[in-house]
Nucleic acid binder design. Structure first.
Length: 595
RNA sequence: GCGCCUGUAGCUCAGUCGGAUAGAGCGAUAGACUUCGAAUCUAAAGGUCGGGGGUUCGAUUCCCUCCAGGCGCGCCA
């Protein structure tokens, strides 16, 4: 709130200043990036400051010092401030009044306030994340996407948006058949020996999915009577029998089992999804050839092709017997095939239909969370969405968050991982070993755009190496303090008055209040930038500040003359507890009362 | 070869769309529990911000170039 109040005060004063000096342009024109506010780390530069005068100086052809000198008296007259100082080349450094600080704390304590100021312009957002292929259990890389996407969805909701979370199941295409063959092969091997040549023939030279989970699924198929008819079982054992007579059984069963496992992993991790969207749906032909969603959307784009060209949006053309989308007009490296020369649709075509449906469902922001190895896919998808946007005459914001790699470290050594080889560490294993809260926190301490080193030993440690406990401890500490206050017969009001906060005022207390006040801004920044880690960092910082304060200040005093101060400090602690709880909640991490 | 990400303290990383003396944790060093929870706190140490140019009153931040690492460049998904 303080930040907003300061901004308003400056705008107010600046507006009349510009008028006085005969400046035609308004603030928005002069300062397209807005009025910059800073939170000086060092003492002596005020509690909040702005380099505004330096920014205006070249535009107004007036020295920054002079601008600052004109603005500062007007600003100083606001009850918001205790003082406004000019420093250095022309910084305006503000110090808040006691009333401002108390009012800020009162707002944080207000049980009816949300702690986060909603953003202007509520938007309908579809947030798609994880979307791992159902060919194996979730591994630690997926876990990062899950933790990130879930936290982001909570933040976006807190910022006032209407968010739907979605998991796209890539359950169509030849990788699914490969999965079926992999299970079938394991199934055969459980019943008889399989020669190398038979294996190679069967797999058509490709590498199968391996790993215990494939064998377990195969075993389950053997153990469950009735899954395969006698004919199907006989055919599946016979290398000469046509694949079509049995393979789909293996494919479907494997996929269902794996998807069940993924859902269970996500449930255990505390990552709910509003929608699981199956790619298969896009391929369904309810009314004969060409009636599937993909064909229909490709058809529509094709029809609008001439119009597209006029508007510099990709058009569709035929070449080498295939159908292409001219994505290069929007910056892609090369044009992309929609319909292959053999008549089969590409994955890209399916993705276009999928995103078209997202738009048709009424979302105005589409956020896709992808693994960093898909970054080459962004230009074509972006081109596709813009094509669809033009086609549907609907403005849509499309954003992709790329999640960089996670490398696991155990005992100081990297743990090697490869999905196909079945040699990977699953999310489940990490959760069982490290626990939910520590796992999520570890994932969210770094920018998603940086590769992450996940140290299993450190994630389990209960030290500052693993700040989740540091933050949770601060929360538990507040709760413990309140229990102690209660035991001593100190009533804790549900609504705090300005009088309760009367004794608040020493720098350490002011600093805490001002820091608490920044919470909303941090959350709003996350919502805009899609960078979640500043919130994690903020909470660690806040916890540290509270621990520091706690260590150096007696909060519950027995002396009668300290009663007012005791109340003020309890209020401050309650506020810290509220913000920690809210912040941890946004990250999907628990805020325990006792540890 | 082209594109994207990354390069900041011994290690892992922050660094507010260009701002004041570049920050934090870990590790290593030295300390603090008779009082609200020591899963905490305190002190001091640690830097050519990968190298070199440029733009600017001001560059870790923007531009160019070089070096190093990761990833991606299919009518695969």
């Amino acid at each position: 709130m303080l930040e907003i109040w300061v901004r308003d005060a400056i705008s107010d004063v600046l507006r009349s200043y510009l008028k006085d000096i005969g400046q035609e342009n308004d603030i928005a024109t002069l300062l397209p990036k807005g009025i910059r506010l800073e939170f000086p780390k060092k003492e002596g530069f005020g509690e909040i400051s702005t380099p505004l005068a330096m920014h205006l100086s070249p535009l107004l052809k007036i020295s920054p010092r002079k601008i600052a000198e004109t603005l500062s008296p007007a600003l100083a007259s606001f009850p918001l401030f205790r003082s406004v100082d000019i420093a250095g080349p022309g910084y305006l450094n503000f110090t808040f009044s006691e009333e401002s600080i108390r009012e800020t704390l009162r707002k944080i304590l207000d049980p009816h306030s949300d702690l986060v100021v909603p953003e202007e312009g509520k938007r309908r957002i579809l947030l798609e994340f994880v979307s791992a292929n159902p060919t194996g259990p979730l591994h630690v890389g997926h876990g990062r996407g899950a933790a990130y996407g879930d936290a982001l969805s909570r933040v976006l909701k807190a910022a006032g948006h209407d968010v739907t979370t979605e998991y796209y199941i890539n359950d169509a295409g030849n990788q699914m058949e490969m999965l079926g063959r992999s299970t079938c092969l394991a199934w055969r091997k459980l019943q008889r020996t399989v020669s190398e040549s038979e294996e190679t023939d069967f797999l058509k030279g490709a590498t199968p999915y391996k790993g215990d989970y494939i064998r377990e699924i195969a075993q389950e198929m053997i153990d469950t009577p009735g899954l395969l008819s006698v004919e199907e079982a006989r055919a599946a054992l016979d290398p000469e029998a046509p694949e079509s007579s049995y393979l789909s059984r293996f494919t479907e069963f494997s996929q269902d089992r794996i998807m069940d496992g993924i859902r269970e992993d996500l449930r255990q991790f505390g990552v709910p999804f509003d929608v699981f969207f199956s790619e298969k749906v896009l391929h369904e032909k309810k009314e004969g050839e060409g009636s599937d969603a993909i064909s229909r959307w490709i058809g529509r784009i094709r029809e609008a092709s001439a119009d597209a060209r006029e508007h510099s949006v990709p058009d569709v053309y035929e070449s080498d017997g295939a159908l292409w989308l001219r994505t290069t007009v929007l910056g892609d490296d090369k044009d992309r095939v929609l319909l292959r020369s053999d008549g089969r649709l590409t994955y890209f075509a399916a993705d276009i239909a999928y995103h078209a449906l997202k738009m048709e469902r009424g979302f105005d922001v589409l956020i896709d969370v992808w693994g960093a190895d898909h970054h080459g896919y962004i230009p074509r998808m972006d081109a596709a969405v813009r094509t669809l946007s033009r086609l549907l005459d609907r403005p849509v914001e499309f954003r992709v968050a790329l999640i960089q790699l996670v490398s696991l470290v155990r005992d100081g050594r990297p743990v090697s991982m490869s999905t196909r080889g079945g040699e990977f560490v699953t999310l489940r294993e990490v959760l069982d070993e490290v626990g939910n809260d520590a796992t999520r926190f570890s994932y969210l301490t770094r920018s998603h755009e940086s590769s992450l080193e996940f140290d299993l030993n450190k994630a389990k440690e209960r030290s500052m190496d693993n700040p989740v406990y540091y933050v949770q401890y601060a929360h538990a500490r507040v709760k413990s303090l309140l229990r102690q206050a209660d035991a001593r017969g100190l009533p804790i009001p549900s609504v705090w008055t300005a009088a309760d906060l009367e004794s608040l005022g020493e720098p350490a207390e002011r600093d805490l209040v001002r820091f608490l006040d920044r919470f909303s801004m941090i959350v709003n920044d996350v919502s805009r930038s899609l960078e979640v880690h500043p919130l994690t960092e903020y909470l660690t910082d806040l916890a540290g500040r509270y621990h520091h304060f706690y260590f150096h200040h007696r909060i519950l005093s027995q002396e009668p003359q300290d009663r007012s101060l005791t109340f003020a400090r309890i209020a401050l602690s309650v506020a810290v507890g509220r913000v920690l709880e809210k912040g941890l909640g946004l990250l999907g991490i628990s805020a325990p009362d006792v540890m």
